[in-house]
Nucleic acid binder design. Structure first.
Ligand SMILES: [Mn+2]
Ligand SMILES: [Mn+2]
Ligand SMILES: [Zn+2]
Ligand SMILES: [Zn+2]
Lengths: 138, 138
DNA sequence: GACCTTATCAGCATTCATTGCTGATAAGCA
DNA sequence: TGCTTATCAGCAATGAATGCTGATAAGGTC
């Protein structure tokens, strides 16, 4: 995602207000490679804004998704995960025990659906998910 | 998955009983490439067994998973999907609108995590999910 | 066929992540 | 300043999945 300044400018341009809550979430997502859940973002935000509500965090990440600033991943870990790193396309390795998600910033060439199997589908995205156990869960 | 006879034999060998309900589910999964949800399996089973409970279907697919006869996929379509085709490893193409899932029986060579990125993880599975819209949802 | 054990069923309750709703308050920004 | 939108609290509702219970049914073994 872009810088706090850029994202807030984008929000204003779209008629959204750059509230402290939203700026807080945006800040927490800057250079964040932990793929946080909404819950964990909320916990962190509470440190700075003791009255922020979980509902606002949900709303904000959805707003950011609509603006194309983040993606919301469902990697089968039980809850949504926020992906702010859209600049560098990559794949993921998820721990089936604790849900930890790390990036696999590797391109896999030739990763597309052969025409014979398309069957009328139009493909938007490809996602490669490796699953296993992280060091602490082994 | 194996034939009804083989699966029931496996169940008995493990001390599980080959009840009509279980056999019904197993039969419904034979050569089934629709990646059914538990709900849809249940609806279908109701045709043959009007008193079968959804709970029993849940239990049975988990039993079958423990026996290694099926896999339970979470492809982000909202509910579990039962994959009885373990003989032919393949990937999936899912419709983000209706949840339809079709097979992409293609191997993508070189699809593994580079050692540099493993970071202590031990990898069990790889899953490639293509997402898009099916013909009827376009 | 008898008996022990397990499965099923109905019928709820519960969990968990997420969304919805509401009315009052706060605050962004033109 | 004033219009409009966001936030908040707080609670309800959703939907998929699991848990629980006591009674009944029935599988498999001898
Ligand atoms: Mn990532
Ligand atoms: Mn499949
Ligand atoms: Zn882990
Ligand atoms: Zn569709």
């Amino acid at each position: 995602m872009q810088s706090v300044q850029e994202v807030t400018a984008t929000m204003r341009a779209k008629g959204l207000r750059a509230t402290p809550q939203r700026q807080c979430i945006i800040r927490l997502l800057q250079d964040n490679h932990s793929h946080p859940t909404v819950e964990s973002l909320y916990e962190e935000a509470l440190g700075e804004m003791p009255t922020i509500s979980q509902r606002t965090v949900y709303q904000t990440v959805h707003d950011l998704e609509s603006l194309g600033e983040v993606r919301l991943l469902d990697l089968g870990t039980g809850s949504l995960r926020v992906e702010p790193n859209l600049e560098n396309p990559h794949h993921h390795l998820a721990c089936i025990v604790c849900g930890r998600v790390v990036d696999i910033p590797v391109e896999f060439p030739g990763l597309r659906v052969p025409d014979d199997y398309l069957g009328g589908f139009s493909v938007d995205t490809v996602e490669v998910v490796f699953r296993g156990r992280c060091e602490t869960c082994t």
